[in-house]
Amino acid sequence: MRVIRYTENNQATLAAVTDEGAIYSLPQQDFLALVQQADDKGTTPLQIIQDVIKDSTPLAAKLEDLTLLVPIEAPEVWASGVTYLKSKEARNYEATGGKLDATTFYDKVYDAERPEIFFKSTAARTQGPDQDLYIRSDSNWQIPEPELGLVLDKNGRVLGYTVGNDMSSRDIEGENPLYLPQAKVWKNSCSIGPAIRLAETVEDPYQFTITCRIFRNEEKEFEGSATTGQLKRKFDELVSYLTRDNEIFDGTVLLTGTCIVPPNEFTLGDGDRIEIEISDIGTLNNPVKSQVRKAQATS
């Protein structure tokens, strides 16, 4: 069972999507209200949804006909780095100016007890399905980073899973690791959606298949796939470090790292389109736009 938000009569509406694709409107205001109602009744979000839809009629519209919003307005989005072998190799390549099989401090991060976790976005900065993502104006080497996102409550409980895009400027991060915030955070540099898969309906979260496709002039420029089974760290480990001596909020999303990296010669361009698909969750689609470099103030 998945949960989505869409626009109906200029209002955000919550809905459930069955595995067969039937869509049912829900009375709750948002995903967290659904979770809170389940907690208050001592039951689960899935049971609340099932109680609603057993006497309801599904929408006539199909999922692709709806104007989807972010499935949750996450107060904060955090991200994990160097959690897959492919990510470690890519970071080493960046940090050494393109040397193959190089060894750097990223090897230490990959093997260390403490994972890399960094702040990525806020609700106001996070884009949803079909919304524009921007290319950073002072970077010449940018890529999407397709990731599985954990939707958490304030205690670190995993409420569900979503699709995330942690856009990255490879040249800025490679120039100096202290530039990581600038390599990761700029206007429209993060997206999540299109749905939240309820955690209770996922038997094994290490069996998700992640696929990233990049289109240029609507022709496929790149496609890569991997599985969350390739993740070096467990999700509870990442959550435990995120919440260690740190206050998080209901609806926080933790992106768990990327396992798909386009070829080193590739960089995103204006007009590209990114699709990130995760099995049993859905496909997050975002167009790519260039930011116009702001003119410097003159006297």
Rank of each mutant, 00 (worst) to 15 (best):
N286P: 03
Q296K: 14
K108A: 15
F215A: 04
R157N: 14
I49E: 05
A38C: 05
A33H: 09
N188V: 01
T258F: 02
T267G: 10
Y110N: 07
Y106Q: 11
R5L: 05
N165L: 02
T18G: 10
D39P: 04
K187N: 12
V158L: 08
F222E: 03
T227A: 11
L268F: 02
V151E: 10
K234M: 01
A33R: 00
A124R: 12
A22I: 04
I196V: 13
Q127L: 12
L63V: 00
Y106F: 15
G21S: 09
D280M: 09
Q296A: 14
T18L: 15
N92E: 08
V288D: 04
T43W: 06
D130I: 03
I196E: 08
R213I: 02
D270P: 02
P129L: 05
N10C: 11
A295M: 12
L284Q: 04
V288Y: 03
T96F: 11
K120W: 00
S290E: 12
F235Y: 13
T43C: 10
T252E: 11
L178T: 15
L150F: 05
L284V: 02
Y93G: 03
T228F: 09
T211S: 12
V163A: 12
K184I: 00
S225C: 06
D250F: 06
L180R: 04
I49N: 06
R197T: 03
S168M: 09
D270V: 05
M1E: 07
L32T: 08
G42Q: 09
L66I: 00
Q142V: 04
F31N: 00
D280S: 14
L63P: 01
I53D: 04
K232W: 01
